[in-house]
């Protein structure tokens, strides 16, 4: 190292700083470019008609109403199942047990689950829900598959929210003679709610954007879903098919815009909620 030609530390500092400035700009510009392209090409496609009419001619004509409805149903089922399971697990881990082998196993399991690719969830949902349980390609199969997929997110965010409740709250509640369950439901959970809701909203965003896990479990029928067992196509699956098969570029951009805007709104809402929550705590 010593013999190598070396820059003055000050020059090196300036060079590196410039290089990092350039790289950061590239990273941010690329991400912003993606967003801008979608909005620029997609926004002109949006109209009341686009949002309130069903797709016609395989998506070449009409709107995306049935896919919006399917997305909402699927997401709703996913959270209906995942929220109680996830929050219950988090309460158990934080309030009802001490660190032990069981908690370590549960945490490790949740982290592994978080890393499993969505296509594996899709395969699993296809075999268990579609085939073995004979739910077929349906809202129910898709929703349950998504529930499993978002479960780790809900467990982790709820656990963090519950841990952030000051221990003094619990002590006061105990000293007033409440049981642990009363303390959890009347003291701990109410203060942890914003954090828990944040996790739920994040999961909504993930469910809306998911494609690989949904396409093999909910199917891709374009009809308006009428029951839990109807096969249906979500917005992201619809977008994927429009774009991949080159069905209709304008409709693809329109669908992408709806998809991206709803996810951005959800994420921004989460962000503000978290900010407010953090401010209130400090």
């Amino acid at each position: 190292m010593g013999n190598r030609w070396k820059l003055q530390p000050r020059t090196e500092q300036k060079l590196v700083q410039f290089l990092m400035y350039v790289l950061t700009s590239v990273a941010v510009l690329v991400l912003v470019f993606i967003l801008a392209v979608i909005l620029k090409n997609g926004l002109p496609q949006l109209s009341l008609e686009f949002l309130t009419r069903n797709p016609a001619d395989m998506g070449r004509e009409g709107g995306i109403l049935s896919t919006i409805v399917a997305t909402i149903f699927l997401t709703f089922i996913a959270l209906l199942v995942a929220t109680p399971l996830g929050v219950g697990t988090a309460i158990y881990l934080t309030e009802y047990t001490v660190e032990s082998r069981i908690t370590r196993i549960i945490r490790f399991g949740a982290e592994c689950l978080a890393g499993i690719p969505s296509i594996i969830f899709g395969l699993f949902g296809f075999i268990l829900f579609v085939n073995k349980l004979k739910f077929g390609w349906s809202i129910l199969s898709g929703g349950l598959t998504l529930a499993f997929m978002v479960l780790p997110t809900i467990i982790r965010t709820s656990e963090e929210a519950i841990k952030a409740v000051p221990p003094a709250y619990r002590l006061v509640s105990f000293s007033l003679g409440s049981t642990r369950w009363q303390t959890v439901t009347r003291v701990v959970l109410p203060s942890a709610i914003p954090g828990i809701v944040t996790g739920v909203i994040l999961s909504i965003g993930r469910s809306i954007g998911e494609t690989a896990a949904v396409i093999f479990t909910a199917g891709s029928a374009l009809r308006l879903p009428t029951s839990l067992f109807s096969s249906s196509r979500t917005m992201s699956v619809h977008f994927y098919i429009l774009a991949k098969e080159g069905v209709s570029l304008p409709k693809a951009y329109g669908t992408a815009a709806v998809l991206v805007i709803s996810i951005l709104i959800i994420n921004i809402a989460t962000y503000y909620m978290m900010e407010r929550y953090i401010k209130r705590k400090s």
Binding site: A27, V28, L31, V32, I34, L35, V37, I38, G205, R206, I208, G209, E210, T211, S236, F239, Y240, A243, A252, A256, L259, V260, I263, L264, I266, N267, I268, Y271
Partner: peptide, 22 residues
Amino acid sequence: LKPVIELLAGIPSVVYGFIGLM
């Protein structure tokens, strides 16, 4: 910028694929 970048983490993967294709 940090929140902007984190917001972009939520863009669905199909959208990235589409931009790549186009």
